[in-house]
């Protein structure tokens, strides 16, 4: 490759091309790339929240089943990996997924605000954008704040009325949900989660480029089923405690 200098003489380049940033970083630098990051981190969090709900169904099988399961969560992977190792792998993965999901969301929101500096001065009439899609930011914030509370309450035991440590997870859950206000917050957060999933679990297909006439009509049903199963399962726990089904 030859470059022309200001004097018009031919100079031979010693460099072939500017070094490109690593592929993932370059992709994340773009808005479409950030949407991929949101979709992929969203899938990670979706898998987790589904497994979390299924695991907690152990509450219906009594204290021994629940506490045995809670213990297994701390040691699974052993003896191949050290005890707690897999627990931390999962925690780290979730932390990264949360950070990426939130960072991309904030960055894209800023971009989108800039894309329309002067809003419509008359009333905007949305035709198809549904309530869930238009409230993603707010449902996301509600769920995010809830997760912080949830960790403090049931992982670390801060503010918990009678925290008995990791050995009696069953008791910790029942004691926590016995406070109607905590149960109400839990239910509210799960309704927000359901709305977030209703849009997110559909939207991710578009973002990931998964679009085919053969399965397109299933995408909305998948999102509805996912939102209902996860939020429905989760909401059943405080209701079971408050109605005395679980004591």
């Amino acid at each position: 490759m030859a470059k022309t200098t200001d004097t018009g003489q031919q100079a031979t380049a010693t460099d072939t091309a500017p070094r490109r940033r690593p592929w993932l970083l370059e992709l994340y630098g773009t808005a479409v790339g950030k949407k991929y990051a949101m979709a992929i981190s969203g899938i990670v969090l979706m898998v987790y929240v589904l497994l979390h709900m299924i695991g907690n169904l152990k509450l219906y099988f009594g204290p021994e089943a629940m506490n045995e399961y809670a213990e297994w969560l701390r040691i699974f992977g052993a003896p191949a990996a050290p005890e707690n190792a897999m627990l931390w792998v999962v925690r780290l993965l979730l932390l990264v997924a949360f950070i990426v999901h939130i960072h991309a969301a904030v960055a894209l929101t800023i971009t989108n605000r800039k894309a329309r500096p002067l809003r419509y001065q008359s009333r905007r009439d949305y035709v198809v954008a549904d309530f869930a899609a238009r409230t993603m930011r707010w449902t996301g914030i509600i769920v995010g704040l809830f997760v912080l509370f949830h960790l403090a309450d049931l992982t670390f035991g801060y503010g918990h009325p009678d925290f008995r440590g990791h050995e009696d997870a069953y008791h910790n859950v029942v004691a926590s949900f016995s406070r109607p206000l905590v149960s109400a917050f839990y239910i509210l957060a799960n309704l927000a989660l359901a709305l977030h999933l209703y849009h997110g679990a559909w939207s991710l297909f578009q973002t990931m480029g998964w679009n085919h006439p053969r399965f397109n009509h299933w995408r909305r049903w998948f999102a509805i089923a996912f939102a209902v199963v996860v939020a429905g399962g989760n909401i059943s726990f405080p209701i079971a405690v408050l109605t005395g089904l679980i004591v």
Partner: peptide, 29 residues
């Protein structure tokens, strides 16, 4: 700005172009 899959564009398009093409765009990008 960036796409968040509201679908308002498809509803407004006078030629009724489908947002399926946005998925294709994402894939090719």
């Amino acid at each position: 700005g960036s796409c968040t899959n509201y679908g308002e564009c498809e509803a407004a398009c006078p030629k009724e172009i489908s947002i399926d093409f946005i998925a294709l765009l994402n894939k090719d990008y």
